[in-house]
Simulated assay, not measured.
Amino acid sequence: MTEPPAKRGKSRSGTPKSDGSAPGRSDSPVTRAAVLDAALAIIDSDGVEGLSMRRLADKVGRDPMVIYRHVPNKAAVLDGVAEIIIAKLSVDPTAADWDAQLRAVARDFRELALAHPRVVPLLVTRPLATPLGLRPPSVVRPLEDMLALLTRAGFSGADALHIYRALFGFLYGHVLNELQEVVERPDETDEVLRLGLHRLPISEFPLLRELAPLLAAYDGAAELERGLDILLTGLSAALPGPA
Rank of each mutant, 00 (worst) to 15 (best):
M1T: 11
T2A: 11
T2N: 09
E3T: 01
P4W: 03
P4F: 10
P5D: 03
A6W: 07
K7V: 10
K7E: 14
R8S: 10
G9S: 12
G14H: 03
T15V: 14
K17R: 12
S18A: 05
S18I: 05
D19F: 01
D19I: 01
G20M: 00
P23Q: 11
G24I: 09
G24N: 13
R25D: 09
R25I: 02
R25V: 02
D27Y: 11
S28G: 07
T31G: 12
T31R: 09
T31V: 04
T31F: 02
D37W: 04
D37S: 15
A39M: 07
A39H: 10
I43H: 11
S45E: 13
S45V: 14
V48Q: 11
G50D: 06
G50K: 12
L51F: 15
M53Q: 09
R55S: 05
D58P: 00
D58S: 14
V60E: 12
V60L: 07
V60A: 09
V60Q: 02
V60H: 07
P64H: 09
M65Q: 11
M65A: 09
M65D: 12
H70Q: 08
H70K: 10
N73V: 03
A75K: 12
A75D: 06
G80Q: 03
I86C: 01
A87Q: 07
P93M: 04
A95Q: 02
D97R: 00
W98H: 01
L102F: 04
R103C: 05
R110G: 04
E111D: 14
E111A: 14
A113M: 06
H116G: 11
P117D: 08
R118H: 15
V120H: 02
T125C: 08
A129E: 13
P131C: 15
L132D: 14
P137V: 13
V139W: 06
P142E: 03
L143V: 14
E144W: 07
D145P: 04
M146R: 03
A148I: 08
L149P: 05
L149E: 00
T151C: 07
T151R: 02
R152F: 13
A153D: 08
A153T: 02
D159P: 05
A160K: 03
H162M: 03
H162L: 07
Y164S: 10
R165Q: 15
R165G: 15
A166K: 05
F168Y: 10
Y172R: 15
G173F: 05
G173S: 13
L176K: 08
N177A: 10
L179F: 00
Q180A: 11
V182Q: 08
P186A: 08
P186E: 08
D187H: 08
D190H: 08
R194N: 13
L197C: 15
L197S: 09
H198W: 05
H198M: 15
I202S: 14
F205E: 10
L207V: 13
L208M: 03
L211H: 15
P213L: 05
P213Q: 14
L214R: 12
L215G: 02
L215W: 03
A216N: 14
A217E: 10
A217F: 01
Y218E: 06
G220P: 00
A221G: 03
A221K: 05
E223L: 01
T233W: 02
L235V: 01
S236Q: 05
A238L: 01
L239E: 05
P240A: 06
G241C: 11
G241M: 13
G241L: 15
P242I: 10
